[in-house]
Design a protein around this nucleic acid. Structure first.
Lengths: 197, 197
DNA sequence: CTGGGAAATGAACGCGTGTTCAGTTAAACT
DNA sequence: AGTTTAACTGAACACGCGTTCATTTCCCAG
């Protein structure tokens, strides 16, 4: 046997990335073999190398595309006028976007140490850009006098950690709907930055 | 050669755990081999099995002991009378305790998926006990009327995520001292739970 | 000074790893 | 219908994995 019937690079390529995403998220990059990924796709291990140069860039591409998509999605939002409204928008956006992509988020946070130094630097640059988007909101709010934090950089990291934490406990069909989660967190975020309700 | 001169189980045992801790934290459980751990200790791989039954329980013991020590340290604290003071105490305790043990914390959060189901359940039970300690403070504060959160369980998880996030960015010799970090976070925590300054 | 047990070696076990590549098959194009 | 080419196989490569165990060395008690 060789080429499968009905096979196509437009189909197999995405399926490989999808399988890698799932398996990396479940078991971790180092614990997943190329043969496992291939099996999930229904293909021999050698075939993966028609679509990726090696295992490392399979991981890097997943993380890179996730962060790129995240930044693009945020940039595409119509921005609210004042900082507090923009912060509410960020809170909602962050929670819902991340809840929709648990595997991507998990990998992007957990597999950083499995990146080569160059790839790590590249990913950190993208993450930094996202953090900076939030920090700018906080700075603007301080300038407006509509919110106040002790340290805008630390508040940025604290808020992102708090919001991303939703992914660790949220389960579909749980006590709260995504919208209720957003409302709960927005109330806390608003308090954290000292904005009036 | 066989037995090294000056060797002793009271020395080698802890050194193995120390090496495993360091390497697991840096490279991840799955990416670290028993031979690497042995090399760091200065011993052959087979010798590790005089001190641990297998690689899995090396990981489990590290996580288990970390959480057990954490709980014991918190329990040993003289508790403040009112909830807001106890929350400040928790904030300070959590940040300083975790900043002192970056490797343990990292492993305890990142390597959960590499535990067998039984070990995972055991670790989760310990973590839950720690979370519950914070949640009780929040509940008491609500009962006292000195603080208010939209949902005490979610607020618990949000606060712990926020506080533990310090470990991801704090570097010794950075802009802020540990005490300044504590003060910065306490100001945010106090706002988050709606307590007056 | 000697015997016994603790501590460690080093080789071996079977198996899995990421990656390469000559060969084979199915689809697409002329 | 025939040819080209994209897609994939399957075997191989060199090496590393966790774990076991007979053997060796060193320390200490008597």
């Amino acid at each position: 046997m060789a080429r499968k019937s009905g096979s196509h690079s437009q189909i197999t390529g995405p399926r490989i990335r999808q399988a890698a995403l799932r398996l990396f998220a479940r078991h971790g990059y180092a614990a997943v073999s190329m043969r496992q990924i291939a099996q999930e796709v229904g293909v021999q291990a050698g075939a993966l190398y028609l679509y990726t140069s090696d295992k490392q860039s399979l991981l890097f591409d997943l993380m890179h595309d996730h962060l790129t998509d995240l930044l693009a999605a945020w940039d595409a939002q119509e921005k609210q006028a004042d900082a507090v409204a923009r912060l509410e928008q960020f809170t909602r956006f962050h929670i819902l976007y991340h809840l929709d992509r648990p595997d991507e988020v998990f990998i992007a946070y957990m597999e950083l140490r499995n990146l080569t130094p160059d790839n790590f630097a590249s990913i950190e640059r993208l993450r930094r850009r996202y953090e900076d988007a939030l920090e700018e909101i906080l700075r603007n709010g301080q300038a407006e006098g509509t919110l106040s934090v002790p340290d805008s950089r630390i508040a940025t990291l604290a808020l992102i950690a708090m919001l991303t934490g939703v992914n660790t406990w949220y389960r579909q069909g749980g006590r709260l709907s995504p919208d209720e989660v957003v409302q709960t967190y927005w109330e806390m975020v608003r308090n954290t930055v000292g904005a009036r309700g």
